[in-house]
Design a protein around this nucleic acid. Structure first.
Length: 863
RNA sequence: GCCUGGGUGGCGAAAUUGGUAGACGCAAGGGACUUAAAAUCCUUUGGCCGGCAACGGCCGUGCCGGUUCGAGUCCGGCCCCGGGCACCA
């Protein structure tokens, strides 16, 4: 072993050894417990960013930990290779998206390899490869046959200048990003997947996922948004205006009815009244995101008609209102301004009457005409509602639903907030939807034998529309049914389709005859899935849905794709900027800036290194290109080595929290590895250590051994159960501090140190595998550390004869006592009361009570 | 607007089931080594007060209130920051 730590040499040698020994290859083995550790696949944007490094380091630590614990572990990698950024790069650089994507994949694969992740590269998948997306198309056709995929219209952002559909992120302040034109909503035909048919199972199955964070399950449950309520109609001349409400108890308080601008009644009203038509047209302005719709100013216009209250027959005016969503319920609501904040705001603005029909249980019955927002929530009592007065929420809903049913106007039903999944995208760089449009036969599925429908890879988009639609060789085809000339569908699939099942394909990517095979049931479900919290809802919900559809078609034998889920936080860095000219901002990389501190170490300012002039410090923010505060992992690996980068990432904060980048923190991580290297190297230069003789140890040696085994127990728990890698590393650092402080060079000193250094190496192997490979062989082992077994704590070494307990008086710390390990309560109380530092606080006072917490503390309560 | 997390020293954080607040590391100060610097090693470090000192006291986990022998942790109300909101991935 060399006496100086040289990361580049160590890492090249370790990676070469793993390659030579095919150490990261995973094969299906009968009789060995399998473990599937999966990280969310990256979008090949060009270079890895720190979020990727964090994600894959977490996955690699878990992978290597379970390997050392004897499991047959699979850790695959792939590329979420279709998507918008490739088209944007194509527009900017005039390079076909395919070339850009494949080049990026090559570079990023090299980066991943240089970080030493134990990935089985023989299973690599790229979603833009025809051998992958063929199965998107094949499965889409199966869903079409079953009625799970269907066609209807959907709303999109429309740029009227470019005549193009825009993604939400391409709409900035209501305008198209390239043209600056005001964006409009437009209805176009699209294909949908009937995820709502699985709403109930997607919701109830969350209870069967104890390995998922509560927060993610709560978000998914709220997203699905199951609510029980009443669907009923407001009768009018032309029939009934249907609404759905969860608050039928407030029905007697309805003073108006409002419909969405896209509602058929609004269209009908617009046809005969130009003012209404203008208003409906006005509502088309702006984007389609829920955030935008929910924050816009509430506006409305009378539809020029009225309906009857279903219980009283009283006429109620119909309004067209922009705050009513066509996508939820029936696209219409009964307005109850006294008991709904949004209705209240609307009614106040347009002078609509209020009627108070619910009161707090303790309050007196209010005057019907009391204005203002009344009781909210479901804990009230119905009033001013005739026969329903005095009922609580549930009883009132039942009674009103029964009366509506008796009149043939309504019934109780369940409503979900979840909407079906629209998968059509009017974009080039995606998986073609396998349909052919024939004038005679309609929409005809592409026969299975003609799959995949191959996406031409040599087109370059120019920003106006989908180049596929202009590509004759792609569009023009023969109808599979009648053979006459027909047009191929040019919409491609949402990239969420690609990422909804890629984790299955890793198990069988060499099978060209089937989407999945038996190996999928060997590896799946995924034992541990790791990725960003930003995917908590959409990606994870779509993957769960897709898995259930495949199960129902008999393709897989499990119900849920991911047994355990770890959501990692974002990586942040300092943000520096200068204001240049007319409000323009110029961002500077933290690498170009020097921070100024006061004597307490507080940041007081910053200057640009090149000119020494101040720049504005904006605090921490997520690493991004636009803020110019990203850190290039490659530069770090070259400067410090992969192990240092991995160690810092895992040490700086627990995986679920955000991580603030710190160059000095990276240096600290490097310092630790150097100290470890030096310590082991000094130990091994004295030759092989003698065998450990447990009976011959002195107190200091026993104490160090105890710490070794306590550390083994703690690190096993921190990595294997808690996923708190930061505290595992802290314990390992403490152990190194302790070993290097053990004086003496006697035989048993060396034996205890050998045991300690071997434990340190094994415990660190999942986190910094390259350096541990060298240390392990330095400590006298011929096999790779990847083949070594995870250490086990020796219970005999953990045993303690005495314990130190805390003594509190009225909950305040007043002293410590040392007692025998098995001491009785009486002995503890006596020791606590007679402890000199405790005496002044109990003397002359009445002891009311003594609380003893086993192995921790004694609290004396005095008055 | 709706849904969901988070807030602890100068900084990243720790405290695992309600039981010693600040482990571990960074930064900063003092010292050793060195012609010097870097590197390395030793050492101090939440705030305030008292003491020559050993040490002791009080305060302290975003803010206000509550439960408890005991609250960073539980409950109620507020403030601030982040993630998601269905065509970014």
């Amino acid at each position: 072993m060399q006496d100086i730590y040289k990361p580049a040499e160590v890492e090249t040698a370790a990676q070469a050894r793993w390659e030579r020994e095919a150490a990261t290859r995973s094969l299906e083995k009968a009789g060995v417990p399998e473990y599937y550790c999966l990280c969310m696949l990256p979008y090949p944007s060009g270079r890895l960013h720190m979020g990727h490094v964090r994600n894959y380091t977490i996955g690699d630590v878990i992978t290597r930990y379970h390997r050392m614990n004897g499991r047959n572990v699979l850790q695959p990698m792939g590329w979420d290779a279709f998507g918008l950024p490739a088209e944007n790069a194509a527009i900017k650089n005039r390079v076909p998206p395919a070339k850009w994507t494949y080049d990026n994949i090559d570079y990023m694969r090299m980066q991943l390899k240089s970080l030493g992740f134990a990935i089985d590269w023989t299973r690599e998948v790229a979603t833009c490869h025809p051998k992958y997306y063929k199965w998107n198309q094949w499965f889409f056709l199966r869903m079409l046959e079953k009625g799970i995929a269907y066609k209807t219209t959907g709303t999109v952002n429309w740029d009227p200048v470019d005549q193009t559909v825009l993604a939400n992120e391409q709409v900035i302040d209501g305008r198209g990003w390239r043209t600056g034109a005001l964006v409009e909503k437009r209805e176009i035909p699209m294909y949908y997947l009937k995820i709502t048919a699985y709403a109930d199972e997607l919701l109830s199955a969350l209870d069967g996922l104890p390995g998922w964070p509560e927060r993610v399950k709560t978000m998914q449950a709220n997203w699905i948004g199951k609510s029980e309520g009443v669907e009923f109609g407001f009768p009018h001349e032309g029939g009934q205006l249907k609404v759905f409400t969860t608050r039928a108890d407030t029905l007697m308080g309805a003073t108006y009815v409002a419909v969405a601008p896209e509602h058929p009644l609004a269209a009908k009203a617009a046809a005969s009244d130009p003012k209404i038509a203008a208003f409906v047209e006005e509502c088309r302005k702006g984007g389609i995101t829920e955030a935008e719709l929910a924050t816009q100013e509430k506006r409305g216009m009378p539809a020029g008609m009225s309906v009857q209250h279903p219980l009283t027959g009283e006429p109620l005016p119909v309004w067209i209102a922009n705050y009513v969503l066509m996508a939820y319920g029936e696209g219409a609501i009964g307005g109850v301004p006294a008991h709904d904040e949004r209705d209240y705001e609307f009614a106040v603005r347009y002078g609509l009457p209020l009627k108070t029909v619910v009161r707090a249980p303790a309050d007196p019955v209010p005057d019907v005409r009391v204005s203002g927002l009344g009781f909210l929530g479901k804990g009230g009592v119905v009033c001013n509602s005739g026969k329903y007065d005095g009922l609580g929420y549930q009883a009132a809903v039942e009674a009103i639903a029964a009366d509506l049913a008796a009149k043939g106007l309504g019934k109780k039903r369940v409503q979900y907030r979840l909407r079906d999944w629209g998968i059509s995208r009017q974009r080039y760089w995606g998986c073609p939807i396998p349909l052919i449009h024939c004038d005679a036969c309609g929409d005809v599925p592409v026969p299975d034998a003609d799959l995949p429908v191959i996406l031409p890879e040599d087109l370059a988009p120019d920003g106006s529309g989908n180049p596929l639609a202009k590509h004759k060789a792609f569009v023009e085809c023969a109808c599979p049914k009648c053979g006459e000339p027909a047009r191929r569908e040019t919409d491609t699939m949402d990239t969420f389709v690609d990422s909804s099942w890629y984790f299955l394909r890793y198990a069988c990517r060499d099978n060209d005859a089937a989407m999945v095979d038996e190996r999928v049931n060997y590896w799946l479900p995924v034992d541990q899935y790791i990725g960003g919290i930003e995917h908590a809802i959409l990606h994870l919900l779509y993957s769960r849905f897709w898995t259930k559809v495949m199960r129902d078609m008999g393709l897989v034998k499990f119900d849920e794709p991911f047994t355990n889920l770890l959501t990692q936080g974002m990586v942040l860095n300092h943000i520096f900027l200068r204001r240049t000219g007319a409000g323009a901002l110029s961002y500077y990389s933290p690498a170009e800036v020097e921070l100024k501190h006061d004597t307490d170490g507080r940041i007081t300012g910053a200057v640009l290194k090149v000119d020494g002039e101040p720049v504005q410090y904006e605090g921490f923010g997520t690493m991004s290109k636009s803020k110019n505060n990203g850190v290039d992992p490659q530069a770090l690996v070259e400067r410090y080595g992969a192990d240092t980068v991995r160690l810092f990432m895992m040490f700086a904060s627990p995986p679920e929290l955000t991580l603030e980048w710190s160059e000095t923190g990276v240096e600290g991580a490097q310092r630790f590895l150097k100290r470890l290297w030096k310590a082991v190297s000094e130990h091994t230069t004295r030759g092989p250590a003698p065998a450990l003789d447990r009976a011959a140890l002195d107190e200091a040696q026993r104490e160090l051994r105890r710490q070794v085994h306590e550390t083994v127990a703690k690190v096993s728990d921190d990595i294997g159960r808690r996923y708190t890698f930061n505290t595992a590393i802290a314990a390992i650092m403490e152990l190194l501090n302790a070993v290097t402080k053990l004086p003496g060079d006697a035989l048993q000193d060396r034996a205890v140190k050998q045991e300690a250094y071997e434990a340190l190496t094994l415990l660190l192997a999942p986190i910094v595998p390259h350096v541990c490979e060298s240390l392990w062989s330095g400590l006298g082992h011929r096999d790779s550390v990847m083949a070594a077994r995870w250490p086990a704590a020796d219970p005999a070494a953990l045993k303690r004869d005495t314990l130190e307990l805390v003594v509190q008086v009225n909950g305040k710390l007043r002293g410590h006592i040392r007692v025998a390990a098995g001491a009785s309560q009486e002995v503890l109380q006596e020791a606590a009361l007679t402890e000199p530092s405790v005496q002044p606080f109990v003397q002359g006072k009445t002891v009311r009570k003594i609380v003893v917490v086993q192995g921790r503390l004694v609290n004396v309560v005095v008055a």
